[in-house]
């Protein structure tokens, strides 16, 4: 029986790990179809990270990355953020178009043409969508997702608005670490799920944890 808060935390973590597992599996399958290649997933992990440490865990506050953001609402509301290293995003562009991005010397969104940016948005859509479906299937909760938004900038800066949202309810972020690989190449990075407090409770209630 659940009788201590430590136990509850372990059980919560297990539940989130399971969502992460299903989500990463779905994402690997969907990305394999999108890229026409075999995609493997790493063993997913769920990390609880203090806000001040978030940027470091995601790769470094001033390191430039490609970030995707999806707003979610319904029974669960919050945000999905996915952080991809520039090199990974470039590889995805190459896998689809057969060529390197148009402005390889630029380190902002201008690095990518409209078409390249939209295909990177599509990967955000696919990966976040896989997680949303996983969460929804696992919990039976209804979740709607916004269109994907893309931003190329320093990791600290792209996560700061979502860190503010987390900061309203607590001092820790949940980070889903699940990497997708094509052969030995890593093609996708870390994902942050940012449910608000009410949504967290909804998820836990729906699977009978609280």
């Amino acid at each position: 029986m659940i009788d201590t808060s430590a136990n509850i935390d372990d059980i919560r973590k297990d539940a989130l790990n399971e969502i992460n597992n299903i989500g990463a599996g779905n994402a690997a399958t969907a990305m394999a179809a999108f890229l026409g290649r075999t995609i493997r997933q790493s063993v997913p992990k769920v990390l609880t990270v203090p806000l001040s440490d978030m940027a470091r865990v995601l790769g470094g506050a001033d390191k430039v990355a490609v970030a995707g953001l999806v707003e979610i609402n319904g029974d669960v509301s919050g945000y999905f953020v996915i952080i991809q290293e520039i090199g990974q995003a470039d590889r995805i562009v190459e896998m689809v178009t057969g060529e390197a991005p148009v402005n390889i010397e630029r380190m902002s969104i201008l690095r990518y043409s409209d078409f390249e940016a939209s295909l990177l948005s599509e990967t955000v859509n696919i990966i976040c969508g896989s997680y949303i479906t996983a969460t929804s299937t696992f919990t039976g909760l209804k979740i709607r997702a916004s269109i994907p938004y893309l931003c190329v900038d320093m990791i600290g800066s792209v996560i700061s608005a979502t860190a503010s949202e987390i900061g309203k309810t607590g001092d820790f972020a949940l980070i889903f670490e699940s990497e997708l690989y094509n052969d030995a190449e890593r093609i996708s990075g870390k994902l942050i799920l940012i449910p608000d407090q009410k949504s967290c409770n909804n998820i836990m209630l729906s699977i009978g944890v609280i």
Partner: peptide, 23 residues
Amino acid sequence: VDIAMMKIAKPPDQLCSLGLGSC
């Protein structure tokens, strides 16, 4: 100086914050 932190210093030390977005 990371998210939600503050620091005080005197020269020659300098203070920095990396990757400010909406912060």
